[in-house]
Design a protein around this nucleic acid. Structure first.
Length: 103
DNA sequence: ACGACGGCCCTCG
DNA sequence: ACGAGGGCCGTCG
């Protein structure tokens, strides 16, 4: 089962996200030139086979929420905090400051 | 080819 | 400020 071309792009963009920072589904959608395909993007991350290989855990919701995670948000939080991203109550602290915008 | 699902986003009440 | 509903996109069975 090969990943769709869309997911491929998404994963590639994910690799551009530096450690200690996070991005949003929407920004990703925009990065792939499909601002409305935010759901498809989420799908891509969910189907992502290379769990830690791809920083899918660095993706949060537009409002700074953790969003979801294929292995459980708990693990996601753990990973994020491991990179220096503080999470509180399912919410990223200083979200607006550590967010990475695909330039 | 069709229908359903998904780690969502936005607007309206 | 909170809750509910609708909409869009791609991939899988």
């Amino acid at each position: 089962m090969d990943l769709g071309i869309f997911e491929k792009k998404v994963l590639k963009k994910l690799l551009e996200i530096p450690s200690g920072k996070v991005s949003t589904y929407k920004l990703l959608a925009i990065a792939v030139k499909n601002p409305k395909a935010v759901r498809a993007v989420g799908n891509a991350l969910h189907k992502n086979l290379d769990a830690p290989r791809v920083p899918c855990h660095r993706i949060v919701k537009s409002d700074g929420g953790l969003g979801g995670y294929g292995g459980g948000q708990t693990k996601k939080i753990k990973l994020l905090e491991s990179e220096g991203v503080k999470v509180k109550n399912g919410r990223v602290l200083d979200f607006e400051k550590i967010i990475f915008r695909f330039k």
